[in-house]
Nucleic acid binder design. Structure first.
Lengths: 151, 151
DNA sequence: ATGGATGCAAATGATTTGCATGAAG
DNA sequence: CTTCATGCAAATCATTTGCATCCAT
């Protein structure tokens, strides 16, 4: 699998047509597992681990291996973002499901909340001076949540 | 190992006295491997993987397992930061070695450069409204570097 | 002396790979 | 009917654990 990122910011989650066309344009097939996994991501507005995704599959025939392969594929195709919360699991979230956002994770209870604030406009532009192009960023916050602080 | 973070922003890399006192205050010992690993991190101003650290050890007797244990310890003590570049390796960098900074990683060649720009003042303060305290952030940039673009 | 740290061997757990079968285009 | 995807089994790789020994305090 060497497909370059090819989703030009056009994919809207649940937009099955767009989903199909991304796969088609790479001669990849629209299969049951791929559709179900995409829908699971769509209906969960927080990053999911491989085993969380696997656990939500209704088609219990679908193998864990398929989930791994699918997430790697989706990542290459620019359908999902890989997100790191500094624990032992990689998490995945649909790109463009909602507008661009970040997360705050409680260091104690590991609860996750979305954070709508993002980098100021033009922040990435500053970096163009470095000679890099196609710049993206990953930004996550960590803290102690209200309940954990009082507990 | 359950020591809470206890380095109140005071540790300066290479400041062996401070390093010793952090360990001492937790009844932990200042050993050869710990010192050498700290120095390796100090002299490499970019995040290192476990195996990179292991490879730089001059005392070849030091076991890989010790590197793992040491990095977990340093992280709990707030001596290092764990950094994620979305590949298969966790990386570690000394905190306070230089002033707070971030990185930009080339998605092709995986080269890493430091980025001095950080979040605007007051950015994290906005998040206090969410009820979280002791907020930190992780921010990394990804892009295609100059040489990879022309190549 | 004594509690913590290390090295070595072995276990664990996540992720990947090979291959024959099954399904999408 | 041809190519790509899946399931299953087995391999691989990073990371952790148990335990006897060693070393810093």
């Amino acid at each position: 699998m060497q497909a370059a990122k090819s989703n030009n910011g056009k994919f809207k989650a649940g937009d099955t047509a767009e989903f199909r066309s991304i796969l088609n344009s790479h001669s990849l097939k629209v299969t049951k597992p791929r559709i179900e996994i995409m829908k699971i991501l769509k209906s969960n507005h927080k990053p999911l681990t491989i085993s969380e995704i696997s656990g939500k599959l209704t088609n219990k025939k679908t193998d864990l291996v398929t989930v791994y392969r699918t997430m790697n594929l989706f990542e290459e195709l620019g359908i999902v973002n890989q997100i790191d919360f500094k624990d032992e699991y990689k998490r995945y979230e649909l790109i463009y499901d909602r507008h661009h956002h970040h997360h705050i994770v409680c260091r104690k209870c590991r609860k996750v909340e979305n954070v709508e604030t993002c980098l100021p406009e033009g922040f990435e532009k500053l970096l163009l001076k470095t000679g890099y192009s196609e710049i993206t960023h990953s930004l996550e916050f960590f803290g102690i949540c209200g309940s954990c602080k009082t507990a």
